[in-house]
Design a protein around this nucleic acid. Structure first.
Length: 263
DNA sequence: CGCGACCTGCAT
DNA sequence: ATGCAGGTCGCG
């Protein structure tokens, strides 16, 4: 569920609420989470104050006055929900950070796959530019793809190549750029790399702007309409009318138009 | 590389 | 009952 735009949106939401606040206690509400954040770690968080909330790729970092760092990765289904005192927690509340103003930041995560880890010190800096940052540019992507013989779709999902790019937006960007997902990464020329960078920026920014969360079930499935190819197997390509195809690449559902994404 | 593991809920 | 899901890690 959460791709980069959703993670960025969630970060902005909790940043506003958490910055400058003190964590009064942490509630761990699921056994898998207990394994990831043992009692001692949860208790150690009480009394610490949030100095900043940041994001790199899909990893969120809650920075604390003590110098420690609480890292959160939503994985497949996580999201932050803010609850005021008296509010009922969402049905899949797995973790709650109780703040000193009575707000609870609740990690709502049906599949309970999210990763939560407490680090004693900030993690070392990474060199690969985040997909939403200005330095994620043609030069970077060209050099990152040049050394890979894997399919370009698989390369895009490698967080060392395109930190933050996920399965939906990889398919979408390749459609926009007119590149077949199976094309070997290192076989993509400069011009098409430039197109791909522009396409990634476009789809990620658009996702951020519209702020719609994708669900493949229920009424919200209409949100699907904002995608050109993802989850549209058999439907007509909006550019050329050919039926959209679905293949499995790098173990993930991959959607593309066989006519306007030729090899 | 592909695949299972990690988890649960939902559609078929 | 089966299979699938927006992510990542670690294995062979």
């Amino acid at each position: 569920m959460p791709e980069l735009p959703e993670v960025e949106t969630a970060v902005r939401r909790i940043r506003r609420l958490a910055a400058g606040r003190t964590i009064t206690s942490v509630r761990v509400l699921h056994p898998a989470y207990r394994r990831r954040l043992p009692r001692a770690a949860a208790r150690a968080l009480a009394g610490d104050r949030v100095t900043a909330v940041s994001r790199y790729a899909k990893t969120q970092s809650i920075h604390l006055t003590s110098g420690r760092l609480l890292e959160v990765q939503f994985r497949m289904t996580g999201d932050w929900v803010a609850c005021r005192s008296g509010d009922v927690f969402p049905p899949h509340a797995r973790l709650a950070l109780m703040l000193d103003d009575g707000v609870a930041l609740v990690l709502d995560d049906p599949r309970a796959l999210a990763v939560v880890r407490l680090h004693e010190a900030p993690a070392p800096v990474t060199s690969a530019p985040d997909a939403l940052s200005p330095s994620f540019d043609e030069d970077w992507l060209a050099s990152a793809l040049a050394s890979r013989r894997a399919a370009v779709k698989a390369a895009l999902l490698d967080q060392r190549v395109a930190p933050g790019v996920g399965n939906i937006y990889a398919s979408e960007a390749l459609w926009h750029a007119g590149i077949n997902p199976r094309t070997p990464a290192r076989g993509i020329g400069r011009i098409r790399v430039a197109r791909l960078v522009a396409a990634l920026r476009l789809v990620l920014r658009r996702g951020l702007r519209t702020g719609v969360r994708y669900y493949r079930t229920g009424s919200a499935r209409t949100a699907t309409s904002r995608f050109a190819v993802y989850d549209r197997e058999g439907e007509s390509c909006v550019r050329c009318g050919a039926p959209i195809r679905r293949i499995v690449l790098a173990g993930r559902g991959t959607y593309f138009c066989p006519r306007c994404q030729r090899r």
